[in-house]
Computed example of a mutant assay.
Amino acid sequence: MSDAILSLRGVKTDIAQYHILQGVDLDVPRGQVTMLLGRNGVGKTTTLRTIMGHWRARAGTIRLDGDDIAQAPTPAIARRGVGYVPENMGIFSDLTVEENMTLAAASGPLERERLEWIFGAFPALRTFWRSEAGNLSGGQKQMLSIARAMAEERKLYLIDEPTKGLAPAIVSTMAGALRDLKRRGASILLVEQNFSVARALGDRAAVMDDGRIVWTGEMAELAGDAALQERLMGLSMETA
Rank of each mutant, 00 (worst) to 15 (best):
L144D: 04
L156D: 07
G138L: 00
S137C: 03
M150D: 08
A147C: 10
R154N: 14
L136P: 00
M143N: 10
N135C: 02
K155N: 12
S137D: 07
L156Q: 07
S137I: 02
P162D: 00
A133K: 01
G134H: 02
M150T: 05
R148F: 14
I146F: 12
L156T: 11
G138N: 06
L144V: 04
S137P: 08
Y157C: 05
Q142S: 05
Y157R: 07
R148I: 12
N135K: 03
L158Y: 08
N135M: 03
M150V: 12
E152K: 10
S137E: 04
G138Y: 00
E152H: 06
M143G: 06
Q142D: 02
A149V: 08
I146C: 15
A147F: 14
E152W: 11
K155M: 08
K155C: 09
E161F: 09
I146W: 05
K155V: 14
I159R: 07
I159H: 06
S145R: 10
A151W: 14
A133Q: 09
L156Y: 09
G134S: 08
K141T: 06
I159C: 11
R148G: 13
N135D: 02
R148N: 14
L144S: 11
I159A: 07
N135R: 02
G138A: 05
M143T: 04
R154Y: 04
I146S: 09
L158F: 08
A147T: 09
